[in-house]
Design a protein around this nucleic acid. Sequence first.
DNA 1: TAAAGCACTTTCCTAAAGGAAAGCGATAGT
DNA 2: ACTATCGCTTTCCTTTAGGAAAGTGCTTTA
Lengths: 116, 116
Amino acid sequence: MAVKKGYNNCLDTVRPVRDTLEVINGKWKLPIIISVGIGNERFTDIQDSIDGLTPKVLAKELKDLEEHQLIKRIVIDDYPVKISYKLTPYADTLNPIIFALKDWGINHKRKIFNKE
Amino acid sequence: MAVKKGYNNCLDTVRPVRDTLEVINGKWKLPIIISVGIGNERFTDIQDSIDGLTPKVLAKELKDLEEHQLIKRIVIDDYPVKISYKLTPYADTLNPIIFALKDWGINHKRKIFNKE
DNA sequence: TAAAGCACTTTCCTAAAGGAAAGCGATAGT
DNA sequence: ACTATCGCTTTCCTTTAGGAAAGTGCTTTA
């Protein structure tokens, strides 16, 4: 017998949503993924492509994203040594999320601009 | 003439994504929307349906969500007065985001469980 | 009359996020 | 020799998020 409770159970949806949010939390992770995905591979290019992103924050976020296997850091060993950041194939699975967020943002701005 | 820069421009995507994240930021807003959407209308039901959610945080998030026109607070004026929370039709536009986040979370857990 | 429920608020506190600015070690260009 | 660039790190500081616990005013139920 299930436990009786007065509220509807939403954990089937809430749990996986929260699992995802733990991976892509904060202001910067998705912007960084988008920037790298669009072809920015160098530290300073990524930084310059995103308004307000400081090197300290970028370095930290890149480490987090590497741990989650969404970005790989590649050391190119000629002279001079170059560092290149690329998305992993796994990062491509985030595309539906990114497009959904993008579409909603575009629509939301339009809504605010027109009505308020 | 466009300004020359060494990096690829990603602001077309980054900006609307960030606009969206500003609305649904934090650990709790989407879980609350999911819970209300599934039929939890009372303050304590919403609270009880989401693990770890405290009344202070719930009250604050409900206010934020009202301001963004995603939830409406309805006062039902018989004796005793009842308060009911409902999603606005606008909140339904978040569904693609919620489903994308849910799917990714489910898949991510499976990935972690199987391989690491 | 006491206890419990509802919808919160208040206070206090900690941890984490994030911004500003400077610096650093290596290399490259002038 | 000097300056600039790259990929960071370090320090310092402020802001925000969020958790714990208690309480409040009202009402209902036992």
